[in-house]
Structures are given as structure tokens and as C-alpha cells.
Amino acid sequence: MPEIIFPGPEGRLEGRFHPQPKTDAPIAIVLHPHPQFGGTMNNKVVYNLHYAFHKMGFSVLRFNFRGVGRSQGEYDQGIGELSDAAAALDYVQAQSQNARHCWVAGFSFGAWIGMQLLMRRPDITGFVSVAPPANLYDFSFLAPCPASGLVINGTADRVAPPRDTKTLVGKLQEQRGITITHTEIEGADHFFKDEEQHMQPMLNTVTEYVTRRLTESTR
């Protein structure tokens, strides 16, 4: 998979781009956890989500937010990171101008950034939010949430407790015109550390959901 450097708001951003040969392949970007707590594009959840989307036929980009790895700049409380995500989406769209579907997936802090990007970019047709930290960040900007998507978390998550995720999902499910699907992985912690019991079921859920959405859109 080619390593790429693309322009961001504060200098270059480092990423991994996995294009499809089909010019009209759907596109996706995958956003990593908090930069100040060890989050990078090589986080296991992010890495596996990247490959799950690619196996579904997406051209996929994951990248390091500013100040992480070889990406220039410094951590910016989520404000600059949102601009980084917008630049990443611009890059993928420039490479895939015939794409009819555009998705954003994020894990933890990346889920929060991804949902904000969703509000700014009406061209995003679906989202996957893995373990969104609804206890740490304000998600009230999702009013209304502009697209349907999947929220997935573990029942043993102590970083982003399930009760807060359920409250967030409940508010989103009250909104008209969209469908929010919520799945909990039994026994999984924040990082889905057990490969067989937690990580794989999470990835299977994402694959089933996204594949169904893509199939429905072609009918």
C-alpha cells in the first residue's frame, strides 16, 4: 500500500492510501484515536477498519493527524484535526472523482472528528463511529444528523461507557429522515483487544452494515 504525503492546513500530512482499480469505486477515510494518548493511523482498530473497507471495494485513506508521525503541525484540540480530516477527504475525492458513495469511519476521538466532518460535508453518504466518547465530548452539534450510520461499542468499555453511548444513540434515533443503527459487542473493551471474541465481531458488523447500505443504494 503506497505511503503518501498530501497537503494539510498546517503542512504535510502522512497517510496510507489504498485505491481501487475501478474509477467509480466508493471512497472512505478512517480517523484515528486521540493524538495525545498514543493514537496513530496504525492503531489496530483503525488498521483493521481500513482493510475492511478496502475488501468491500472502497478506495480508502487513513492518515496521521497533525503532529503525529511525519504529519506536520501540533495538536489543536480537535479544531485543526477536523480541518485535517477535511483535507484528507479532499485528497481522496480528487483521486476518485467518479465515486458515488463517500463514507467516514472513526474510532474514539476519531469518531468525534468524523461526526463533525459529517456535518460540514453533505457529500458524505454514510458513517461508522466506533466507541464514540460521548462522555468526554459534546455531540450536540448533530442536530440534525445529516446521514444514516452505524454506532458500535463494547459493553465493557471503561473509556467511553456504554450508558453514554446509548444516550447519544437515543437522541440521534429520535431524528427524522435518518436511521442510526447501534450494535454492542458483548464483553469488548474500548480497544476490542480480543481478536476472536471482540475485534472480528466488530469488523463483521461493520462489513455487514456497509455492504447492506451499498446494496440498497443500487436498487
Rank of each mutant, 00 (worst) to 15 (best):
F6Y: 08
R66N: 02
A28P: 03
M41C: 05
I29L: 15
E208N: 12
P2D: 14
L89M: 13
N98T: 01
M56Y: 04
V169C: 07
E195V: 09
G73N: 07
V46S: 07
A143Y: 05
E208T: 12
N64P: 03
M119K: 15
Q197A: 15
I4E: 01
V159W: 01
K55L: 06
V169I: 07
N204H: 12
N48H: 15
S140P: 13
G8N: 06
N64F: 09
P33Y: 03
A160V: 03
G126F: 02
T183P: 00
I27W: 10
A134Q: 15
G114N: 06
R176W: 02
W103V: 01
R163V: 00
N204T: 03
T183V: 13
Q36T: 00
I113L: 06
S140E: 14
T207F: 02
E195L: 10
A105N: 13
F65L: 01
L203P: 07
E81G: 05
F65S: 02
F107R: 04
R12A: 02
I113A: 06
E216D: 11
G15Q: 09
F109R: 14
L172C: 09
N204M: 11
E14W: 09
R120K: 15
P146H: 05
P19R: 14
V130G: 10
R121H: 14
P33G: 05
V206C: 12
F63H: 06
V169D: 00
L142M: 14
F139P: 13
G8Y: 03
Y47P: 01
G57N: 05
A160P: 08
N43P: 11
P144G: 10
P161D: 11
S108I: 11
M56L: 13
E216F: 01
H190E: 04
V206A: 09
R100T: 08
T183W: 14
H182F: 15
G114W: 08
T165W: 06
I185L: 13
E14M: 10
S140I: 11
W103A: 10
E10L: 04
P21D: 13
E216A: 09
P9V: 00
I5V: 07
A111K: 08
A28V: 08
P33I: 03
F141Q: 14
S217K: 11
G67P: 01
G154D: 02
R121P: 00
H34M: 04
P132K: 13
H182K: 10
I185P: 05
F17A: 01
F17I: 03
P9C: 01
Q173L: 06
A87H: 15
A99I: 08
E216S: 08
F192I: 11
T181C: 01
